[in-house]
């Protein structure tokens, strides 16, 4: 029987931090190995002994692409311990900065990582030669996400303005207002993006997976939701 091994040394779509080895014998898949070789960094260990107020800034460094998730995650954890609930406008502002990260990170994902795959390019820059306007739209959308992050957080990556209890400094109203026009444009651009992406060729493959997600009826689920799956899992995450 013929055997074949496919080796992908760098999976670009996980920032090159993984490799995939596939062994095929005949027509059968023999072995699949996903190696994630991101070196261990030991956050859980070195956080011990730090002041609880330092934790959000430190955990942010787990990932520079989604630091808000870690900063806010840590903040909520600390607030839960302290018995604090951040409500009202501060909560809304937190939601807003989270959305900024969302926009930035998801646009990066859609436009710069996956669209090239669907459309047959190695990256967005090469794609820009044929789809200049599309890539420019993506970049502008991404920038808007970053603007939200920078305005509320001080900078795009590892923002400095988030703290346990809310923000070090609440942004001035007129500054927030400056985001408005761009965000309105962004909403339209997002809709255009959906239309655009919907035209991509998707493989018609159905596998019996158990899909897991966070869910909350009316709140941003990642913060407040429960962990649920399409096969009936339903467990609380916060306040355990």
């Amino acid at each position: 029987m013929k055997s074949k091994t496919i080796k992908v040394n760098h999976l670009a779509r996980v920032e090159g931090e993984g490799a995939l080895d596939i062994k095929i014998q005949g027509k059968k898949l023999k072995d699949v190995k996903l190696r994630i070789y991101e070196p261990p960094r030991f956050f859980e260990a070195f956080l011990r002994g730090r002041d609880f107020r330092e934790v959000p800034d430190i955990t942010a460094r787990i990932c520079g692409i989604c630091p808000i998730a870690y900063e806010l995650g840590a903040s909520y954890a600390m607030e839960d311990i302290c018995g604090i609930k951040v409500e009202g406008q501060l909560r809304a502002l937190r939601r807003l900065i989270y959305n900024g990260e969302w926009i930035e990170s998801h646009v990066l994902h859609v436009y710069m990582l996956h669209a090239p795959d669907f459309l047959g390019y190695q990256d967005a820059i090469l794609m820009a030669k044929d789809y200049p306007e599309v890539v420019k739209r993506g970049l502008r959308m991404k920038k808007i996400g970053n603007e939200v992050l920078a305005l509320l957080g001080g900078r795009e990556i590892h923002p400095v303005n988030l703290c346990i209890g809310g923000f070090y400094q609440v942004p001035a109203k007129q500054k927030l207002r400056t985001l408005l026009d761009n965000l309105k444009w962004g909403r339209d651009a997002a809709l255009e993006t959906v239309t655009w992406v919907a035209q991509f060729p998707y493989e018609d493959l159905n596998v019996d997976y158990e899909f897991v997600a966070m869910r909350h009826p009316d709140e941003y689920a990642v913060i407040e939701g429960r962990l649920v799956s399409n096969k009936g899992m339903d467990i609380p995450i916060r306040g355990i």
Partner: peptide
């Protein structure tokens, strides 16, 4: 090239939306 890190610094390059092209 990336070694032990959070990806944030190289992301800065992609965050140069105005300059990237």
């Amino acid at each position: 090239f990336k070694f032990a890190s959070c990806d944030g610094c190289q992301l800065s390059l992609l965050d140069c939306e105005d300059e990237l092209l």
